[in-house]
Amino acid sequence: MHAGLEHYLTVSFLLFSLGLLGVILRRNLLVIYMSLELMLNAANLALVSFSRFNDNLNGQVLVFFIITVAAAEVSVGLALIVALYRRRQSAHVEDLTTMKL
């Protein structure tokens, strides 16, 4: 069976949904962070497949940018999480409610 665009997009959709569920349901900040990465890569997958099926390199270029930015963002985000953990001795989202009145 030949794999068409819709198959790729379905995989991308599934990955994205898993990532979203992870963000919404998991309590550990690190896992939430990993789920976020999963959502980014789902988007990457969609872009690459569009690029492949439309004979256009724009999508691939965009993916490079996303990977680069994601790498930078991960380093900042992880640093924040580590700092937070040192201060609070916890990496659970329920504990981060200081902004609430």
Binding site: L20, I24, L25, I32, V93, T97, T98, M99, K100, L101
Partner: peptide, 16 residues
């Protein structure tokens, strides 16, 4: 104010 739970994941759900 009731909508503002302060929980990150509630916001994420509402956002989604």
């Amino acid at each position: 104010r009731l909508a503002q739970t302060g929980n990150l994941q509630t916001y994420a759900l509402l956002f989604a």
